[in-house]
């Protein structure tokens, strides 16, 4: 078995070696296809992070009357917490609001001075509401808009739905264009691999003829070409791993600046999902290449 495998591998490397430039072109096309796929995947991860970042910034505040009783506020808080769309309700008292405001403006003496001159706490107590599911924020906002309570002074909904929609639209557009590019690359790869195997069969026609003559099995004749297709796949995936990590490393600082305050580590993402990304890519590329080479050998290396 190992002898047969060794001989098939040897013939396969001969195929590649005898048509080295064609093999390089084939692998390059596969690398370009994989690069486009991985780039699209990166865009998706980034946009997913952007969406999460925007969603996490959803700010829903209910400002309450200054004279609202603590008991009334806590009662309202409990009622809001019962709502299925609500994950958590935080009560910020008048005093806490003032302290927080002072902290935020401690480097702004004019505001602090104005506050002092005012002589009283102008800030209202508030309830900060965190949605249970960021995707259902619009439902929560709609419910809160019609929620009736005497102690609610004003409602502040920082509605990010529009931004989310924009991000989703951009992502969808990028995906659509990306899918077209990927489809073109896959088709090109299929044709290039098919052609490479066809040329390999042509350069090996004498051997194939003799193999047939002396009774080599069909599998033995076909296998070197299938193995060549697998080698193309393996080399292209190895090269893309070698190329893509530096690319991601270059991209990472820009992402960190863009998503400041959020943990967006694209390199780490690819590392933790290494096998599910590159393993699946290898399987898909190998499948496409084997298909192309099978078509070529069935057509040109008839036994």
């Amino acid at each position: 078995m190992f002898t047969g495998l060794y001989r098939i591998l040897k013939l396969s490397f001969q195929d590649i070696g005898r048509n080295i430039w064609l093999s390089i072109v084939t692998i390059t096309i596969l690398i370009l296809a994989l690069f486009s796929i991985n780039s699209l995947f990166t865009v998706q991860i980034i946009s997913q992070n952007a969406i999460e970042a925007v969603k996490s910034k959803v700010d829903i505040n209910l400002y309450l009357e200054n004279n609202a009783e603590e008991a009334e506020i806590l009662e309202l808080k409990s009622q809001l917490e019962i709502m299925p769309e609500v994950k958590e309700v935080n009560y910020v008292s008048q005093q806490e609001a003032l302290s927080s405001f002072r902290e935020q403006n401690e480097k702004n003496p004019e505001i602090i001075q104005a506050l002092r001159e005012l002589g009283k706490n102008p800030l209202s107590p508030s309830l900060i509401i965190l949605p249970e599911n960021a995707d259902n924020t619009d439902v929560l906002i709609a419910n809160l808009k019609v929620y009736q309570s005497d102690i609610i002074e004003s409602r502040d909904f920082n509605d990010n739905t529009v931004i989310l929609e924009k991000i989703n639209n951009i992502t969808d557009n990028v995906n659509q264009v990306g899918m077209v590019i990927i489809a073109i690359f896959i088709l090109t790869s299929l044709l290039v691999v098919y052609n490479s195997i066809r040329v390999a069969i042509y350069t090996h026609r004498r051997e194939i003829n003799i193999m047939r003559l002396v009774g080599a099995s069909t599998n033995f004749i076909y296998m070197p070409f299938i193995v060549s297709a697998l080698i193309y796949s393996l080399v292209s995936v190895i090269v893309i791993v070698a190329l893509f990590y530096p690319f991601l490393t270059l991209l990472q600082p820009y992402l960190e600046v863009f998503f400041m305050g959020y943990n967006v580590d694209i390199v780490n993402y690819f590392t933790t999902h290494f096998w599910s990304i590159f393993g699946i890519e290898f399987l898909i590329v190998a499948l496409i290449n084997i298909m192309a080479s099978l078509i070529a050998v069935k057509r040109y290396a008839k036994v």
């Binding site: 002898t3 001989r7 003829n209 003799i210 193999m211 002396v214």
Partner: peptide, 20 residues
């Protein structure tokens, strides 16, 4: 129908190699 890049012995051996 001989392979030009193989010696005479290799040409003969080839028939056996490809048949396992």
């Amino acid at each position: 129908k001989l392979l030009p890049k193989k010696t005479l012995a290799e040409n003969v051996a080839f028939a056996l190699q490809v048949c396992g």
